[in-house]
Simulated assay, not measured.
Amino acid sequence: MGILHPGAMGAGVAAQAVAAGATVRWLPQGRSAATVARAEGLGLRPAGSLEELAATCEVVLSVCPPAAALEVAGQVAATGFRGVYVDANAVSPERMAEISAVFEGGGATVVDGGITGPPPRRPGSTRLYLSGDDRAVARVSALFDGTALTPFPLAGPIGRASALKLSFAAYNKISYALAAHAAALADGHGVLDDLLDLAAHLLPGTPLAAPERLAGAGPKAWRWEPEMREIARASRSAGVPAVFAEAAAETFARWEAHKDDETVTGARLVADLRDDPAHRTEGTPA
């Protein structure tokens, strides 16, 4: 199996395939020293080029930022890859159709994938939904049988796994943007501490009640912003208002400077929503 490209989630997925006995290859070119060390520690084997990876792997799994999904698919298709290509990115069904079209006539079989949950480390925490050609789906599922990444085949064509993934993300991730908005509103009126106390009483376990959970959105916002754009696209195609996803995308865009910064606080993220020169009223000091 080949993995493109092993960030936190991709590395976790690859590690489960290795644990199940698969040989997993990846591309170290252009990756950071930390990524190389992580891949080596997980037992991933380097490939000298994308062409080499495509020629030696029967299954290639793409786990990358959604904005890069179509480009990565095009690069793999250009190698003449003829195995099973799994796009497990947070993309809309419409984007998934574009990715599938890239491989038309080339001999590869495309499988639609959607990962829910954190990077897989313990059984029951993370699911890999799969849709598309039944034989190809079964082949991919077998790579992760008995691992911490639980495969869930979905009956039906390409697009169903992506639709399910984005539907879940629409609730799960937009809730972080909504919590931050509520906190910023309360902060602007001097009642933030009271709001947090109220949320802890009535909404325990939510990002609004636990600022430390809200902080977790900051390092990931650079990936979540394009995911919200994909949710907006999927919403429009289903005749559903896209305004929630579009507003969440704008919120996450405010936090992109905190990419991979695990030290950012919930208070900083709330402050980022209030620090917007474009929305200052006349007479407000800069």
Rank of each mutant, 00 (worst) to 15 (best):
T56P: 03
V72Q: 13
V270R: 00
L27H: 08
R274K: 14
R236Y: 11
E262V: 15
W255V: 00
A69F: 04
G41C: 06
R274Y: 09
L208Y: 02
P123T: 09
T150A: 14
F144N: 01
V264N: 03
E262L: 15
A55Q: 06
G188K: 04
P277H: 08
H201N: 10
D260L: 13
A177N: 02
A221N: 06
A238G: 15
A242Y: 04
P277A: 02
G159Y: 01
F81K: 10
A267W: 06
A248L: 12
A37Y: 05
Q16H: 12
G205M: 12
V84T: 09
S162M: 13
S92R: 06
G266Q: 02
S131N: 08
S175P: 01
P65K: 11
P285W: 09
L203Y: 14
K259I: 07
K173T: 07
W224D: 13
P28Q: 05
G218R: 00
D193E: 14
H5D: 15
L143Y: 08
Y85S: 01
P277G: 08
L154H: 07
F144W: 04
A248S: 13
E51S: 15
K165V: 04
E98W: 02
D133N: 14
A108K: 04
V137T: 01
R45E: 15
A148Y: 04
Y171F: 14
R45V: 15
G2M: 10
V243K: 10
W222K: 03
P65T: 02
D194E: 15
P65D: 12
V13E: 06
A242T: 00
T281H: 14
K259P: 00
E250Y: 03
R213H: 15
A253Q: 14
A183Q: 02
P151V: 01
L128G: 01
V91D: 07
